[in-house]
Amino acid sequence: MTPARTKPAGGLGQAAQWAVALALFAAIPLAGKKFFVTMANEVLVMGLFAVAFNLLYGFAGMLSFGQAAYYGVGAYTVGLLLSKGVLPFAVALPAAVAAGAALALLLGPLCIRLSGVYFTMLTLAFAEMVWGIVFKWYGFTGGDNGIQGIPVPDLLRSPVRYYYFTLAVVFASFWLLRRIVDSPFGAVLQSIRENPERTGFLGIQVRRYELAAMVISGAFAALAGGLFAGYQHSIHPDMLHWTKSGEVILMSILGGVSSFFGPLMGAAVILFIEDMIGKYTEFWEIWIGGIMLAIVIFFPKGVIGTLDSWIARGRDRERAADGTPGS
């Protein structure tokens, strides 16, 4: 796997990049199209979910096939607390984060004992059990019908306001995740990905770090789920199904797991393609499948990763032509 880039945080280049991204997302409602807001909101939510997943996969090398469980538990925490009128939204959303972290603390210790494909399979098995419980527990979760009419505070009732709220929360989360990745903790995760044994020899308790990565990833996935529940006002067990876990893997890899924002771009690309193609043909599966296949074959580092290295190559050539040494 190509090592994730670990540019130091801060620096003008990066700050500018963040500012541009933030400004772009903030400008979307100004276009005056309601549906742009709907789509952008979903891009942000799935982007957060995917970036959180990528902390596990891209940085620590742990391919979880059960992240939908955390996403769904976050959504159900918000949905249940609000629709039963237990807690206000301001408490329910943090509660979703806590629930995601708690679930990861519960399942994580069992999962991290395994590695490779076994880890992947166990995360899948646990997630499917959580799905089964949500799907069947009519008295509590509403079963397969899900929960509808989740009441959000009047302040956030308008889709545009909720969108800005999502934008703020998601970018704050991105900033936090970026800090985590750039911290010594993040460096340890990447060294675990490259070589767990050697990392262990350095006196680092590998499992503790892996568990921490699962908890962080689970917490942010749950936050994404909670945000979605507040926007959509209805939730459903499909949000916990393995197909959802697959979707987030797909977004991350297509975007590129070696860059921090790759998964966000992957989410945007997939959601747009899905929407555009769905509009025009009932045979969307073959289109999406074909596009996926082409990307897998021709973009070995994901869309962003591959374009990035093409551009870098272009720059190098340019520099070589200028006579300055390339890097």
């Binding site: 280049g13 990049q17 541009v20 991204a21 772009l24 962003i304």
Partner: peptide
């Protein structure tokens, strides 16, 4: 440098 933003 912010080509990703433009792409978005």
């Amino acid at each position: 440098r912010y080509w990703k933003g433009l792409l978005a």
